[in-house]
């Protein structure tokens, strides 16, 4: 059976509404055999209630690290966080471990890319969802089980009672991701962080999952931080977006504005490297080179070594600039917009 559905209309997020999550000047250092290295450098962004924020960039640009920092899932022995993560009026970085674990899974929850490695293979999926409920609510096992089954039902699983008794290995990739979503939403969080939730799935399943995520979040008023490398998914599902590169935010703004008129050469490069049938073969715009290693970040603009428009000024450090409802971190954005009309 199939259904033809219109895309869910996106609620206009009021511009003046107070932020649900406000990350300010976040810095993350991680330690390995060679010592400490800075992974995130001055990341600041907001998510408003009910809003969907897309976070894009190549692998290694700091998208997932930003998400893990909000959840504080890195080991404190090997990581150092600095800055402010304000969530519902509290700075998450000032909370005790105990206080933070009350927020995790209850007010903020997360879905990962590979559901097989996020689910525990030795417990049934029902038991794993029940555990989440019992962590946060003082309910009986029976009641928690009922909520788990309701949650499975709400993510479109046809026989929730039977599926709850199964182990993750007996489920397909799409079903596992539904289970993950059920688990993430069972406590009705205010913010959901989805880290590449559909990357491992087929397009047909991807559209089912995205549709489900958006509908559920809209119904319950959950804000979403949606991490992906797929610009088209951001274009279809998000209100605002930020582009990350080398552990910094380099551009941000409303999705339609950023994708139709990207200001940063890197965002432009990403937009124009998407293949399509109409384009002459052999002429896709690739971004030459690769993301520099964390220990060898260029001193000035981090994109300078790969940027087709780099000049001498780009060797100098560049801050992020606010222009109206958009942010941009580029010395030359004004020159480039006037030359290329911004939409090149």
């Amino acid at each position: 059976m199939s259904a033809t559905e219109a895309m869910p209309a996106r609620a206009e997020a009021p511009a003046d509404q107070a932020a649900l999550l406000s990350v300010e000047d976040l810095k993350l250092d991680l330690r390995d055999e060679q010592g400490w290295v800075r992974v995130l450098d001055g990341v600041s962004f907001d998510i408003k209630p009910r809003e969907t924020l897309g976070v894009v960039g190549e692998s290694g640009c700091g998208k997932s690290m930003t998400a893990l920092s909000v959840m504080q899932l890195q080991s404190p022995r090997y990581s150092r966080l600095d800055g402010r993560i304000n969530f519902q009026g509290r700075d998450l970085l000032k909370l005790s471990r105990r206080q933070m674990s009350r927020i995790r899974g209850r007010n903020i929850s997360m879905i990962f890319q590979e559901p097989m490695s996020a689910l525990d293979p030795v417990f049934t999926v029902g038991a794993q969802i029940r555990e989440t409920v019992q962590c946060h609510f003082d309910v009986s096992k029976r009641e928690a089980d009922e909520r788990a089954i309701e949650a499975l039902d709400s993510v479109g699983i046809a026989a929730p009672r039977e599926i709850a008794k199964l182990y993750p290995m007996s489920l397909s990739g799409g079903m596992r991701q539904r289970v993950m979503i059920a688990m993430a939403l069972v406590c009705e969080p205010d913010l959901l962080i989805a880290d590449e939730p559909t990357t491992a799935l087929d397009v047909t399943i991807q559209s089912q999952i995205m549709d489900l995520l958006l509908n559920l979040s809209q119904k319950r008023g959950t804000a979403i931080m949606f991490i992906t490398h797929n610009l088209a998914l951001v274009s279809q599902n998000c209100d605002r977006m930020i582009t990350m590169y080398g552990g910094q935010i380099i551009e941000g703004g409303p999705v339609d504005d950023v994708l139709s008129k990207p200001l940063h050469p890197y965002t432009k490069g990403l937009v124009h490297s998407v293949p399509d049938a109409g384009r002459e073969r052999g002429t896709l715009n690739a971004i030459p080179g690769r993301v520099p290693s964390l220990r060898a970040m260029p001193p000035g603009c981090r994109f300078e070594p790969r940027c087709p428009h780099a000049t001498t000024i780009c060797a100098r450090e560049v801050g992020i600039e606010d222009i109206g409802n958009r942010q941009i971190r580029c010395h030359r954005w004004q020159d480039l917009t006037s030359i290329t009309g911004g939409a090149q």
Binding site: E58, S59, N230, L270, P275, L284
Partner: peptide, 13 residues
């Protein structure tokens, strides 16, 4: 990644 992918598709062509 999509930027690398574009480069590879050009190479294949």
């Amino acid at each position: 990644d999509v930027s690398i992918q574009a480069d590879m598709l050009n190479l294949f062509w």
